[in-house]
Computed example of a mutant assay.
Amino acid sequence: MRIPRLRGWPLTFALAAVTGLSVGPFYWLLTATTRKDDEIFDWPPSLLPGGSLGDNLDRLDRRIGLLRVLGNSLLVAGVQTAGALVVALLAGYAFAKFRFRGRTLLFGLLLSTLVVPEQVMLVPLFTMMTDLGLLDSYQALILPGLCVPFAIFLMRQSLAALPDELLDAARVDGAGELRVLWSVVVPVMRPVLAALAIFLFLGSWNQFVWPLIALRSPEMHTLPVALATLHGNQNSSDYGAILSGTALSTLPMMVLFLILQRQFISGLLAGATKG
């Protein structure tokens, strides 16, 4: 019995090392939020928390309006994620279960947009929002993220594996397409939707370049844009406030992942358990 245990030590050591490399920077971030600026870059770094967390959060709130920018980010990310899930579900269902002229061409065009860098679309998107009069508004941040090609592709691939007999049985019972979608498709696709919701929320929450371009008023700033305003030169950047805001920005994503953790893991493993 000893030999198998000895053989497992290298793997255990490797996993412990990888875990340490992953958790170490995050732990340093958490402890750095509790220190003064001149203590953050001490070498060797202290592993114990300091006593300046309250001061850092107070400066952060006074400079960017912490609750306001958190509310802006939660509103934009929440509405955009919910809308993108609805669009992805409807479009994926249409591509997977309906036969119509031009379906293959449309789906190919959709996939082709995956190779287009986001930066290429900034100028046309800015021009479009200017013509619509939507700059410096929540609509300018939310609308461009409602159609996510990757999300539609993932839903289409997942729904393609759903047996048509299951949908036909619901239709025979008198259910319309929306009823079939809500009562049959959504419960079966719940793990995929949960996994997709986490990815969409993460992308929307961390979005920086487009909100920086589209927003003019500080009152409309999301958290990443507001934190960027705290950067100055090397002598004027408020690192305590910046690191405190960075640590706070991880909380909504951690809470969402904990809520959807079981469904998220099921969604990631769904393809591996088939066949």
Score class of each variant (00 low, 15 high):
166 L>T: 05
248 L>R: 07
121 M>K: 13
51 G>T: 09
83 G>V: 04
246 T>S: 14
111 L>G: 13
101 R>Q: 11
240 G>C: 02
34 T>F: 06
266 S>T: 08
261 Q>S: 11
90 L>I: 14
120 V>E: 10
49 P>F: 04
274 K>P: 02
95 F>I: 03
256 L>Y: 04
199 F>G: 05
73 S>L: 15
189 M>Y: 09
15 L>A: 15
76 V>R: 06
170 A>D: 10
212 L>F: 13
225 V>M: 13
106 L>N: 08
158 S>W: 06
146 L>H: 01
40 I>N: 00
259 I>A: 12
50 G>V: 02
86 V>N: 06
177 E>T: 15
174 G>V: 11
38 D>L: 12
28 W>T: 09
268 L>A: 00
72 N>M: 09
38 D>S: 10
141 L>T: 07
201 F>E: 06
181 L>Q: 08
114 L>G: 12
201 F>M: 06
59 R>Q: 14
254 M>L: 15
212 L>G: 11
19 T>R: 01
93 Y>K: 08
133 G>Q: 00
228 A>R: 12
65 G>F: 11
59 R>V: 13
172 V>Q: 04
45 P>N: 02
44 P>S: 00
75 L>E: 07
110 L>M: 06
270 A>H: 10
221 H>T: 07
114 L>N: 03
188 V>C: 03
50 G>E: 01
266 S>A: 15
45 P>D: 03
242 I>H: 00
55 D>A: 14
85 L>I: 12
80 Q>S: 15
175 A>Y: 05
201 F>C: 07
9 W>A: 11
48 L>E: 02
3 I>Q: 12
193 L>Y: 11
258 L>C: 12
31 T>C: 11
166 L>H: 01
